[in-house]
């Protein structure tokens, strides 16, 4: 655009000269206004991301280039393969549960009279508002083996006590429960906003055509919400994959390193054990997954913008 205006200028007369100055001034001002943003994006995100890739190719003391050595060592280790499995299992299960529960709750909220919706929405969003590291402390306390208030509640229904954080599979489930508890309200809010944007006439038309409530859901609601659903799910996949606080507070990777996800394992290896290059390599395993998800998110958003335009 800047090129076009300078090329066009000579043909025009005196007022165009001031216009050219104006254009130049405008782009200079615009550049100065975006400069802090550019500094943040390149200095604190793009550069560190590139630096992480460089770090991952170094040996432990960061004196020697060892290529993909860190990745090889990681993939060879039983523990790390477990981390990959656990991360995928955790993220996929948690996101599916959050999406389903969120969808259900959004529907239920949408059904009740508008007057009461605000109050219910306010209550149900509370888990999302409390910083997750702190609410997880509460869960940790509820799971605590000897005082577990959850087991106390289960005992009322004659269910034997559950070793919440003591056994690998229960620990995995406990982590997922906390994540679903924390994230489902977010899905609920997003879906509720989407539900409200579906025009009422569509439902009326469907009702006149004799659609059952299942058909209304399948052929009106879901197509209208498709974009929001996919964007929310993809976004949540990223956040859940990268989750750190819940695992750190609840299990800290235990029992026997079986509940580590990428982030907590990267922390363990990189910061606590002091092997920065290998820690960087661990966290870089998230990168391809995130890149694929980001691609689909962007495509979804572009499609949505084109539909709206």
């Amino acid at each position: 655009m800047a090129d076009g205006s300078t090329l066009a200028m000579p043909a025009a007369s005196a007022p165009a000269g001031s216009l050219q100055r104006f254009a130049r001034r405008r782009s200079t001002i615009a550049f100065l206004m975006t400069l802090p943003l550019i500094l943040v994006i390149f200095g604190l995100v793009a550069w560190p991301a590139g630096y992480a890739m460089y770090l991952a190719t170094l040996n432990r003391r960061m004196t020697e280039f060892i290529g993909l050595g860190n990745f090889e060592i990681l993939l060879d280790s039983e523990t790390f393969r477990m981390v990959i499995f656990q991360s995928v299992f955790f993220a996929v299960t948690a996101v599916i549960l959050k999406a389903l529960i969120g969808f259900w709750l959004a529907h239920m909220l949408h059904h009740i009279p508008t007057k009461g919706q605000r109050k219910w929405r306010g209550m149900l969003l509370v888990p999302w508002v409390i910083p997750p590291a702190l609410s997880t402390l509460g869960w940790w306390w509820m799971y605590e083996p000897s005082y577990s208030s959850l087991n106390w509640l289960l005992a009322i229904f004659a269910v034997p006590p559950v070793p919440w954080l003591g056994e690998p599979w229960w620990a995995r489930i406990s982590v997922i429960i906390v994540n679903v508890w924390y994230g489902a309200p977010f899905f609920m809010i997003m879906y509720l906003a989407a539900l409200k944007s579906v025009p009422e006439q569509l439902y009326e038309a469907a009702a006149i055509d004799g659609a059952t409530s299942w058909q209304r859901l399948r052929y009106v609601t879901l197509p209208m919400m498709r974009n929001i659903i996919s964007i929310t799910v993809l976004f949540s996949l990223i956040v859940t994959f990268a989750n750190y606080d819940i695992v750190r507070v609840l299990t800290n990777g235990g029992p026997r390193d079986l509940t580590h996800v990428f982030a907590s394992y990267a922390f363990q290896v990189g910061i606590l054990a002091g092997n920065i290059p290998r820690g960087a390599a661990v966290s870089l395993f998230m990168f391809p997954i995130l890149a694929v998800i980001a691609f689909f998110v962007l495509r979804g958003i572009n499609k949505r913008n084109r539909e709206e335009a």
């Binding site: 560190p48 992480a52 990223i238 990268a242 966290s283």
Partner: peptide
Amino acid sequence: LVPDTLLFIP
């Protein structure tokens, strides 16, 4: 979309 857990080591 870049999470903090990817960036904290660098």
